[in-house]
Simulated assay, not measured.
Amino acid sequence: MYKVAVVQAASVPFDADAATRRAEELIAEVAASGAELAVFPEAFIGGYPKGTSFGTAIGVRTEGGRREYERYVRGAVALDGPEVARLVQASSDHGVHLVMSVIELLGRTLYCTAVMIAPGEGVVGKHRKLMPTATERLVWGFGDGSTLDTMETPGGRVGTVICWENYMPLLRQAMYAKGVQIYCAPTADDRPSWQSTMQHIAIEGRTFVLSSCQVVTRDAFPDDHPVEHELPGGDILMRGGSVIIDPSGAVLAGPVFDEEAILYAELDPSAKTRSHLDFDAVGHYARPDVFTLSVNEAAATSVRFTS
Results as ranks from 00 to 15, higher is better:
Lys129Pro: 05
Val102Glu: 06
Ser101Ile: 10
Ala90Thr: 14
Cys112Ala: 14
Leu130Ser: 01
Val139Asp: 05
Ile117Asn: 05
Cys112Thr: 12
His94Tyr: 11
Thr133Asp: 10
Leu138Met: 07
Ile117Lys: 03
His127Phe: 07
Glu104Phe: 06
Leu106Gly: 15
Val124Pro: 06
Ser91Asp: 10
Ser101Val: 12
Met116Ile: 12
Val115Thr: 07
Met100Trp: 13
Leu138Ser: 15
Pro119Cys: 09
Leu130Trp: 00
Gly120Tyr: 10
Gly95Thr: 14
Asp93Glu: 14
His97Asn: 08
Gly107Lys: 13
Lys126Cys: 00
Gly95Val: 14
Val102Gln: 12
Arg137Lys: 00
Ile103Ser: 09
Ala114Gln: 05
Arg108Phe: 15
Ala90Met: 12
Gly125Asn: 01
Gly122Phe: 04
Val96Asn: 03
Arg108Asp: 15
Val115Tyr: 02
Cys112Gly: 09
Arg128Trp: 01
Thr113Arg: 00
Ala90His: 00
Tyr111Asn: 00
His127Lys: 12
Gly122Trp: 08
Thr109Cys: 13
Arg137Phe: 09
Glu136Thr: 07
Leu138Arg: 03
Val124Tyr: 03
Leu110Val: 10
Tyr111Ser: 02
Val99Asp: 08
Glu121Val: 14
His94Pro: 04
Gly95Asp: 11
Ile103Gln: 07
Val124Arg: 02
Arg137Trp: 11
Glu136Asn: 04
His94Lys: 03
Glu121Met: 13
His94Leu: 15
Thr113Trp: 00
Val115Ala: 06
Cys112Tyr: 07
